[in-house]
Design a protein around this nucleic acid. Structure first.
Lengths: 273, 273
DNA sequence: GTTGACTCTGACACGGTGTCAGCGTCGACC
DNA sequence: GGTCGACGCTGACACCGTGTCAGAGTCAAC
């Protein structure tokens, strides 16, 4: 009979954990002195301890380990548990690999520039959103060409919505497409709406697809948005993504008079390189 | 001013976490209604929220993120934090990769054999240990050759220790070396001792080096140990290690009369392939 | 019998996040 | 101005594996 300390050092486990394994019924000692409460283990229990350690080291939870060791899972369930665990590990490896390259990108940044960006990029899963929209065509994807085309669309859109008795249920946003004839850019001005997509005569209702997007918050007027777009472009390059179309612009805060106070989320759709 | 719910959905964060970020001072709301306690955020705070998310996604703790965003770390400290994080991630990637291949090995096993081993192998860092030892030479590393050479060494060893007034302070163990002349195997019988290595005339005191070893618990007499050694060999093959010498045998439980009850830990030294 | 090493229980901590209960507040509609 | 539903508040508990601590009890060796 071994005391808990001896058993712990033989098994290279902490005494604390042996007590824990006892308390959850995973590895009860072979005997417990009813008077003192002292736990006593046998050398033969090292076998079970080893099995516990081996299974735990796969990343299974102690509850799972207990179920397996107590034959409470059949082969099918066991295979299911292992496959699930394999999938979890694969996911985590991918995530950690991405994290590692992000950390390395930051380190490169502070080595070369002596500081870190104060504007950060976040990868988001942007859900699909239902919007009412008006569109027009601009000569190019350039602030100077787009502003004059896009800006007047909103008053008109809101006017038509009000006339139709529809209340906007989300923020205003803009997105862009290549024109069908390849000449210029289609500029869409939209605003989120809730509920049914009852198309009204002169307002198009569309559902923007969910996208994976690199996003950043742009502060100030939209004619300086290219600075934020460059931040996004650089991030994408450093993290091995590819752009997948034009950026959506989500107007979180908008003052017609004081554009400096404007806050816009730029969402640049991306896909894996 | 945005309510916490609006701010949360804009930032794609849960309301719960925004409250948490407030409570740890990471992202206090721009205003709090003193009457109702309602938190109100400004759109401009999305910038800070984005920075929080970006840094948190590197795997930094929220306390670290707060320190960074509040400019409480200088560039040197920041670099240190990122390097530490990089090292942690590298370590974790290695560990998870190993875990993944272990899980896959188990899956292969249940696919081909319809069950899992009931004898598990555990990789251990075995610390160095100070032992008193006697040795002899056997014709080969084979149970039939070793047993008769090894067994008599122990009574003699204990006799000499007692004569020298030394009390063994650890378990009995055996280990093996290639003989210098290449003929046969040097068989060492040892027992752990505590304290000083005062060498006694007729007992050698040596310090066995720390090793990384694949270990398993062998039950029963040592002439069936080759079964357990095969388990170890197979594990090593499946996990891409190489053996690094003969296995140590650590006699956890030993009955001269009833060898069936014997419990031995086999420690096979390994190194990376 | 003394003493020092060991063991016992029960508790708290870590960290990021979900969830719940019980209650207060806001705003829209009637 | 009342009602109601959606939303917000606080505080608590839970997860999971492990370390650590306090205060008390036990064992074994001298």
């Amino acid at each position: 009979m071994l005391t808990i300390g001896d058993f712990a050092s033989l098994g290279r486990v902490s005494v604390r954990m042996l007590r824990h394994y006892d308390s959850i019924g995973l590895l009860p000692p072979a005997a417990v002195d009813p008077h003192s409460g002292y736990r006593y283990y046998t050398a033969a229990q090292l076998g079970r301890l080893n099995r516990v350690i081996a299974l735990k080291d796969l990343g299974l939870t102690l509850v799972q380990v207990r179920a397996i060791l107590d034959d409470a899972v059949d082969l099918v369930e066991l295979r299911g548990m292992l496959r699930l665990r394999r999938a979890q590990l694969a996911t985590q490896l991918a995530a950690d690999t991405a994290r590692l390259s992000s950390v390395e990108a930051r380190l490169r940044m502070i080595e070369t520039e002596g500081r870190m960006t104060s504007q950060d990029v976040v990868l988001k899963q942007v859900p699909s959103i239902r919007v009412a929209e008006l569109s027009a065509v601009a000569r190019s994807y350039d602030a100077a060409d787009i502003g004059p085309v896009l800006t007047p669309l909103y008053p008109e859109l809101f006017r038509r919505l009000e006339a139709a008795g529809i209340t906007p249920g989300g923020p205003a946003l803009a997105w862009y497409d290549q024109a069908a004839d390849g000449e210029g850019v289609v500029v869409h001005a939209g605003v989120g709406i809730e509920g049914d997509p009852e198309t009204v005569r002169d307002i198009a209702m569309v559902e923007l697809p969910a996208i994976t997007a690199a996003t950043t918050i742009h502060h100030g007027p939209m004619d300086t948005a290219d600075r934020s777009l460059q931040v996004l472009a650089r991030w994408i390059e450093e993290h091995d993504w590819r752009t997948d179309g034009y950026a959506r612009e989500l107007y979180v805060e908008y003052w017609p008079e004081e554009a400096d106070k404007g806050v816009t989320e730029l969402q640049l759709p991306v896909r894996r390189a």
